[in-house]
Amino acid sequence: MFAAYATHFDRDRPLTGLEMGERPRPEVPEHWALVRVRAASVNHHDLWSLRGVGLAQEALPMVLGCDAAGVDEDGNEVVVHSVIGATGHGVGPDERRSLLSERYQGSFAEYLAVPRWNLLPKPPELTFAEAACLPTAWLTAYRMLFTAADVRPGDSVLVQGAGGGVATAAVILGAAAGLRMLVTSRDPAKRERALALGAEVALAPGERPPHRVDAVLETVGAATWQHSVRSLRPGGTLVISGATSGQALPDAELTRIFFLELRVVGTTMGDRDELAALLSFCQAKGVRPLIDSELPLDRAPEALARVERGDVFGKIVLTS
Rank of each mutant, 00 (worst) to 15 (best):
Q283H: 05
K315M: 02
Y142K: 04
T268R: 14
D273M: 06
G235D: 03
A3S: 10
R103F: 02
W32G: 07
A33E: 15
F259S: 13
G236M: 11
I240T: 15
F258M: 14
P296F: 01
L18C: 13
R208T: 15
L158R: 07
L173P: 03
L64E: 05
Y142R: 05
M269C: 10
T219H: 08
L279A: 07
H44T: 03
Q226N: 01
S320P: 15
A129W: 00
A3M: 04
G161M: 05
Y142C: 00
R288V: 00
K315F: 01
E30Q: 15
G52E: 11
L100Q: 12
L290I: 00
R208L: 09
V159R: 08
L197V: 01
V171L: 06
A131M: 08
L126N: 06
V78I: 10
V71R: 14
R272T: 03
V83C: 12
V166Q: 03
L262T: 03
P115I: 06
A194E: 07
A303N: 11
V264C: 14
R263N: 15
V71W: 11
V265C: 04
D94S: 12
S98K: 04
A223Y: 11
A131C: 10
A33W: 14
E308N: 13
D10N: 15
A162R: 05
S185D: 15
G221V: 08
A252W: 05
S280H: 13
V157T: 04
A222Y: 06
I316Y: 10
T127R: 12
G163F: 09
E30K: 13
V287L: 01
V265R: 14
L182N: 01
W117G: 00
A68Y: 04
L195M: 13
W32R: 06
I316H: 11
L197M: 14
H45D: 02
A175Q: 11
G286L: 02
S156R: 15
L173E: 00
T219D: 05
V264E: 13
G286H: 06
L279H: 07
D94P: 00
V183I: 11
L64N: 00
P93R: 03
E308W: 11
Y104S: 04
M20V: 10
R11G: 07
V28G: 00
P234M: 00
V287Y: 02
R152S: 13
P14I: 01
L232V: 12
P14N: 06
D214F: 04
R186Q: 01
L279T: 06
T136M: 11
H31W: 04
V91I: 09
E274W: 01
D298G: 08
R306D: 05
